[in-house]
Design a protein around this nucleic acid. Structure first.
Length: 205
DNA sequence: ATCAAGATTACCT
DNA sequence: GGTAATCTTGATA
């Protein structure tokens, strides 16, 4: 596993750039989750989707601020976690100014260490098959289970020390695939999904 | 008070 | 390909 420099944490201004630019620049960045007050889980973001209050009916923020989506209106640099389908949590990075109601859903990431921990969180066992390995974090609900992100983490400051993102080289444009977003019924033709070409941890082919 | 929808996943044929 | 599981929330009455 490569070594990581915790001082390369993305600064606040990263979270205050254009939404679709941020969704693409988040690809390849290192999502870090601190567990047991000491161990750092590292995953590389490989798939994202953008959501906005502006012109995007699929976004939780489209109809304005409510109790459940309020973190989307707290401004860039926060973690927005929502509960869906009665079973799953999904993790988002809030982008832009508070009134913009914008966020990037982290749909999938590539595990870089701590496979035993991820495996126990996901499958309740630490010995997993090759197939299960690629099923650890290859979807927004799965990723949140593996990283133990729940409603308790909603609203967390990404400039803090529990959950944060480290800078890493941008993915070359030719290696970023753009597509329609998954699992929505409104504004479904927007090409606001981005993923790293040929990465085996992307949620769908 | 009631109800349908939902930024998903696992399992089935 | 299809669908059940599972429950919170916002909308409507």
């Amino acid at each position: 596993m490569p070594s990581f420099d915790l001082s390369k944490k993305l600064p606040l201004n990263f979270y205050h750039q254009d939404l679709l630019t941020a969704a693409q620049k988040l690809l390849g960045k290192i999502l870090v989750r601190k567990i047991d007050n000491s161990f750092y889980l590292y995953t590389k973001i490989v798939e994202t989707e953008a959501y906005s209050k502006n012109g995007d009916e699929a976004s939780h923020s489209f109809k304005g601020k409510t109790k459940s989506n309020s973190v989307m209106f707290e401004g860039g640099g926060k973690l927005y976690v929502y509960f869906t389908y009665g079973m799953y949590y999904c993790s988002n990075i809030v982008i832009g100014n508070a009134e913009q109601g914008e966020a990037v859903l982290i749909r999938a990431a590539e595990p870089l260490n701590g496979f035993d921990i991820l495996s126990i969180n996901r499958f309740k066992k630490n010995k997993i098959s090759e197939k299960e390995k690629f099923n650890l974090t290859s979807g927004p609900g799965k990723l949140s289970i593996a990283l133990n992100i729940t409603k308790n983490e909603n609203g967390m400051d990404l400039l803090g020390n529990e959950i944060f993102i480290l800078d890493n080289d941008d993915i070359p444009k030719n290696d970023i695939v753009t597509s329609k977003r998954i699992g929505i019924t409104k504004s479904k033709d927007l090409l606001w999904r981005f993923f790293i070409k040929n990465n085996p941890y992307v949620s769908k082919k």
